[in-house]
């Protein structure tokens, strides 16, 4: 029951969870943008593969993706630490989900914007890059923020491939102390203390964005 004994361990685990979150969000969103561009492409050769990758990424449980990466990469000769295997798996899942949000954002840009740019004589690339994409990304921000919070919670799944993040630490500590309920409740509180205020912040940002765009 001595919090001061095991809390540091849990917080160490939290640090790892946050690292995983940062990695999966940064690389996941970048990859998600690539997927979104692929899915929106007019070239069938780009669109179909992108669609398949995204639908598979969204259709498979994140846990399964983690197992596939964990068991599968060594088989093809790629030796990653558990941490990096988890980062890779989570990045893929985040990329698939974020690509849908980015694509929806891009599609929600009013047609008139593209027409105005075309009427001015802007060619396709600057029209997309400087007019459509910035507005599209802005629309996706609320959804992407929600996804970031979910991916933080998703790092708890890395427990299953023996990454020393928060959940793993909780399991080890509870096995040592037998104070199962306390440890897991404290763990839950740690997650909540970060996730819940983060949700409030994202709702606030969402309202601010909506207001600035009347």
């Amino acid at each position: 029951m001595d919090l001061s004994l095991y809390l540091p361990r849990l917080l160490d685990g939290l640090g790892v969870s946050l690292q995983l979150t940062a990695l999966s969000v940064v690389f996941g969103y970048a990859l998600g943008l690539v997927f979104a561009l692929g899915v929106s492409s007019i070239h069938r050769g780009l669109r179909w593969p992108a669609l398949v990758v995204v639908e598979v990424g969204r259709g498979i449980p994140a846990l399964v993706v983690l197992y596939i990466v964990y068991y599968g990469l060594p088989a093809v000769g790629v030796l990653l630490t558990n941490f990096w295997a988890a980062a890779a798996g989570l990045t893929f899942t985040v990329a698939a989900y974020s690509s849908e949000m980015i694509r929806a954002g891009i599609q929600s840009v009013p047609r008139g914007q593209g027409e105005a740019a075309a009427a001015l004589g802007l060619s396709r690339l600057p029209t997309f890059a400087r007019v459509i994409l910035p507005q599209g990304l802005r629309s996706s921000i609320p959804a992407l923020m929600g996804l970031a919070i979910q991916s933080f919670q998703g790092t708890s799944l890395a427990y299953s491939i023996s990454v020393n993040e928060l959940m793993s630490q909780a399991y080890q500590v509870s096995s040592l102390t037998f104070a199962y309920l306390t440890v897991y409740v404290v763990t839950g509180v740690i997650y909540a203390v970060i996730a819940v205020p983060a949700t409030w912040v994202s709702v606030w940002v969402e309202h601010r964005l909506a207001r600035g765009h009347a």
Binding site: S156, A170, Y171, G188, Y191, V196
Partner: peptide
């Protein structure tokens, strides 16, 4: 509601299975 959604599912399952 926010609390329930703020805690990852796996933690909930462990709380109920091991803790209760």
């Amino acid at each position: 509601v926010d609390l329930i959604r703020g805690i990852p599912p796996i933690v909930w399952l462990f709380v109920l299975f091991f803790g209760v």
